[in-house]
Structure formats: structure tokens, C-alpha cells
Design a protein around this nucleic acid. Structure first.
Lengths: 153, 153
DNA sequence: CTCAGTGCAAAGGATTTGCATGCCG
DNA sequence: CGGCATGCAAATCCTTTGCACTGAG
């Protein structure tokens, strides 16, 4: 997924402004970092790679960006908060979740499979009083590094 | 999904024994409770509904049951640990995750849709060095109670 | 008698909040 | 100016761990 950074920033700035918030340098840096990382990042990832950023501000800004629909939370196999840019910005995709180290990576499926999935979900959206907004299809397993390690204990 | 409790307990007891562990009353109570609740439960749910149980023991027993494959973790929209009995016991299903209150509920899709999904996943499993073990298809949205509340702020 | 399991209390780690200050519009 | 954003530190919340004790095989 090739992402036009300038455009990404434009979208983000616009959204924030629409919500009465500012696109400050701290927020810009978060968006920049997420674009760089190219996969769901934990807060530790973010803080580790941008030591200049302050923990509480990062948490608060992520929450703001999430509320504004710029960032979304991603569920891993542990209980750490992971975030990535909205699909509107980085494109539709799914996640490979390592059950051992917790790392989450992106992947896409062929359009045909994607269509089948869409159909399946359509079937779901029916009956209930539950109001569907989104969905997630994750594949759990061992990432490349972890699958190399010998069977643990 | 109708579950035969006696049989469920039999399966659990057997598995634990095979792992050199005991099916104690505390563990039995957890399994019983999970059967009652009928959906992924947080630790708070468990502790709230069984005040006699001790926090640390519940956490430890859940971890043991998870290691033994009797219980599995479920990802919600928050960072709370949620658990449910393995599909081997309660049957294959997917999850409705409320993005507002965090509640997770079970649902199943028609067999045709299930097949389509299976095919889609098959297409995924090929390419990578990632070793797939399991997958999850969740629908995110607003649960019935939350969808009734007026638009928040 | 031995080892797994339990209770209780304390520790740990991640995330959130309070408050004073700085900065953009 | 007025309000949103930031830093720093302290507070919270959930989860994990240490240790002594109990119980089943």
C-alpha cells in the first residue's frame, strides 16, 4: 500500500480541524511515525522510537486521533494497546497476530477472497439488534522469527 | 449451542488429568460459571458473580485452563482479559464486539457463509512464512443497550 | 509424604488523570 | 485573551507474583 504522505497529513489536518482540534507537531509526529512503522504499533514502540515524545501526551493524542477516526485500535494477543492509521488512509487489510511475541503485521487477501468474506459478513449483518460498524479478520499464529525458535518447553 | 454439562466437565477433567493437574472445586466452578454466562467473560464478571473465589486463584486457574486448551482468550475492544470455553466444548462461533461498552457476544453464521470464510482463509494460509494456527472473525459495533442510548456528546 | 493448588498481601506494568504552564488562533 | 495542548508527577487499574499453608493422591 503506497501512501502519499502529504495527502495523509492533509486528511488528518482536515479532520482534526473539523473536530475543533489542532494538528500540532506532536500529533504530526505520531502520524509520521505510524506511516513509517507500517504496522500496528504499541505505545512502547512509539515511545521507544520517539524518545522526545512524552508518554501522557502520546496516550492523550492517540485517544484524540482515535476519536477523530484517524487512528484505530488493533487487538493483538496480549493486552497492550496497538494502533494503526485508519484504513481510509492506509487501505483495507487484515492482521497476522503472533501468539507468541504479540507482534501484529498487515496482510491483504486476493480480491476474490475479499469478496467472499464481504458476502459472509453481509449474511451476518441481518437479524440482530446489534448495529455492525466494522469487522476484523485476524489470523493468529507464529510470526517468522518465532516459528524458527525451537519448541518452547 | 446446547452443551451437555456433564460431558463438558468430563472433557475438562480428562484434559487436566492428562496434563498432570487436578480438577479442583475452584476450577470446576470456573467452568460452571463460563457455561452459565454463555459468552466471553471478563475477570470482573467472574469475580463479581462468584465472590467466594479469590482473585489470584482465578487468574492462575484461568491461565492453567488456557494452557490446557480448555479456555481461550477473547479480544474485545478494551484491554480487559476475556475468556470463554474452547470451541471444542461450546462449538464454533464468532463474536459481536461492542465498541462502546466492550461487551462481547457470540453469534454463528449460516453454513454457506462459514464455508466462504473457510475458503477465504485457505487462500490466505499459503504465501507466507507466517504459520497460521487459528483465526478470528469479529463484528464490531454497538450492542443493543448501547445502540439505544442517545448519541453521546 | 509430596506436590499441586489456594489465600492473602504486596508488587508490577500499563494507562489515565490533575494541575500548572505554553502556544495557536 | 481563550481554549486546546503539553509536561511532569502522581494516581489508578488490572494482572502477576511471593510465600506460607492446605489438601488430594
Amino acid at each position: 500500500m503506497a501512501v502519499d504522505r502529504a495527502q495523509a497529513h492533509a486528511v488528518v489536518g482536515e479532520r482534526l480541524r473539523a473536530a475543533g482540534q489542532l494538528y500540532t507537531s506532536g500529533r504530526r509526529e505520531l502520524v509520521e511515525l505510524l506511516l513509517d512503522i507500517g504496522r500496528p504499533a504499541t505505545m512502547a514502540d512509539v515511545l521507544g522510537q520517539r524518545p522526545s515524545l512524552v508518554q501522557s501526551s502520546v496516550y492523550r493524542n492517540m485517544a484524540d486521533l482515535e476519536r477523530t477516526g484517524i487512528v484505530r485500535r488493533v487487538a493483538g494477543s496480549d493486552e497492550l494497546i496497538r494502533v494503526e492509521l485508519a484504513e481510509e488512509i492506509i487501505g483495507h487489510h487484515h492482521h497476522l497476530v503472533c501468539t507468541q511475541c504479540g507482534t501484529v503485521d498487515d496482510f491483504t487477501v486476493p480480491e476474490a477472497a475479499e469478496r467472499a468474506l464481504r458476502d459472509a459478513l453481509q449474511a451476518i449483518a441481518r437479524e440482530g439488534s446489534f448495529v455492525p460498524e466494522d469487522h476484523r479478520l485476524d489470523v493468529l499464529g507464529r510470526c517468522t522469527p518465532c516459528s524458527r525458535e525451537r519448541t518452547i518447553k
